[in-house]
Design a protein around this nucleic acid. Structure first.
Lengths: 134, 134
DNA sequence: TTTCGATATGTGATGTTATTACATTAGTCA
DNA sequence: TGACTAATGTAATAACATCACATATCGAAA
């Protein structure tokens, strides 16, 4: 891909749905939002999501089976570091950050154990500052 | 719970299924293995799994929707540190480790952002040393 | 010992998430 | 054109998880 990927129609629709949402969406929620645009089957969503994941434009949150638009699209994958997500169980807001030391520590473990990592998931579940003050 | 939890019949059956497996099992795989012991419905498995998770005797691997017996039952939650899992996509083997520095870095982020963390998932997907040599 | 409450269990139905299989369409390029 | 590749449409099914309701088990309080 180039830095500004040409998206197909379905990919654009799915990406825009995620970009305008204020939190993560499930594949089926996206499907429902796009029925007016002609979407009829889950696969239309999942195929677009797969491509958008490839392009690094969105992330999958494994612990809640949902997807979010990448909040730092310019810094490409945070200089190849791992991305951590803090997910608020009250309001659903997701904060994205990367930490070089964590990235290093994980790489230290994998190299010393001969483990070839392909993808690493770091998800912190809890309650965000806003919700905690309520 | 005490350090050696009294398990109910269903909890024991589910825990033993995980303990004798050489890798993670899905809830439905466990169900199939326990049909001979009278298991008939998913809920019998999920209820036991929930308790075993509470007791810290097993872990849930979010990225593959599966469960493993804790490999370090004595060190109780690795002195309350987070646990990271390295999951081989070839053979399914899971290695469990904890790293105080990673734990610290995550805690630093959460405290500085007023985020009250309840559970943190770290899962490294890739290919283990054995499978990489093949 | 009886009664009550908490915990555990049994069961069917349902809800949610994701993939398989196959047909069709659209763009690219020799 | 023809042939190849990527994208799409659709139905069916698989895989994962929970709801709702009935029943049972067990310990503590009356």
């Amino acid at each position: 891909m180039t830095s500004t990927q040409e998206l197909t129609k379905n990919q654009s629709l799915v990406f825009n749905a995620l970009a305008r949402a204020d939190g993560p969406l499930s594949a089926y929620t996206i499907l429902d939002q796009l029925r007016g645009d002609g979407f009829r089957a889950p696969l239309q969503v999942y195929r677009a999501l797969d491509k958008l994941l490839d392009y690094g434009m969105i992330h999958r949150l494994e612990s809640i089976n949902a997807f979010v638009a990448c909040s730092h699209p310019h810094e490409h994958n945070h200089s190849h570091g791992m991305i951590a997500f803090a997910i608020c169980d009250k309001c659903g807001q997701v904060s994205e950050f990367s930490d070089d030391i964590i990235t290093d520590r994980v790489r230290d473990w994998t190299t010393s154990h001969g483990f070839k990592q392909s993808k690493t998931t770091i998800e912190i579940r809890g309650v965000c500052a806003n919700c905690g003050n309520a």
